[in-house]
Design a protein around this nucleic acid. Structure first.
Lengths: 119, 119
DNA sequence: GATTGTATTCTACTCCGGTAGAACAAACTT
DNA sequence: AAGTTTGTTCTACCGGAGTAGAATACAATC
């Protein structure tokens, strides 16, 4: 059972993934600065994340805690992309990325090691 | 300058990518069958694709021709995903896919060849 | 060239994600 | 304890993607 997070909800989650448990107030501050959101916008999105089970409030201080790992979210989003435009073939997506001209030598090196370590 | 295609527009483009130049009528037939779209819905989407420069009509028969390659569309969508949830790091996306358990041996083999042919 | 049928465009409704103001609750100050 | 500030929720507007009916243009047939 996967939780689909909208783009704006991902912004909330990203703060938690980057900073760990965080108060709503602090999240609002961060997103105010990062994307100019009104405080109540942030609170609304936090509420929605709670409602769909992506966030829980924990004591002390009623802090926000993520119930979804970034890996889970990435997996879901990536699967959607693959189904949407890669005909469900994950290796085509990888091939597409490797085919780009804008990978740094470091990234290429990392990927070589990664792929060759498979199996 | 990239053309952003919405999900429904991608359905139109996909018919062209799979079948080459196609009449509007035929596209409507295909999508009627594949996703149950009303004929006019398909025509509307074709029109929008034309308006944003993703499709042109060519003689004879006023046929629809794609002006965007699937590779271009894939690159755009993939870049958006990477920026949305992978902090802009393409290699993390690849790592995430490779980390899954659902790649077939054939796919892995293909990828190894691909990676090792780089540079 | 009037009539019928078909291809295309125009126009508009609907639903939902994004955003935030207003209302409310809790805590703090004097 | 009344008043003030701060944290949270309730409610609702807005724009845009998705969808399709109505209207129009075009082609074919007689």
């Amino acid at each position: 059972m996967q939780i689909k997070l909208f783009d704006s909800e991902l912004k909330i989650m990203d703060v938690l993934w980057k900073n760990g448990d965080t108060t709503a107030k602090r999240i609002a501050e961060i997103l105010k600065e990062q994307v100019g959101w009104n405080k109540t916008t942030t609170y609304t999105l936090i509420k929605r994340c709670i409602d769909k089970g992506a966030i829980e409030r924990v004591e002390p201080n009623f802090v926000c805690r993520s119930l979804v790992t970034i890996e889970q979210a990435r997996e879901l989003e990536t699967t959607e992309l693959i189904n949407k435009i890669y005909d469900g073939a994950a290796d085509q997506l990888v091939a597409s990325i490797l085919g780009r001209k804008n990978l740094s030598p470091e990234e290429i090196e990392k990927l070589k090691r990664l792929v060759n370590s498979l199996e």
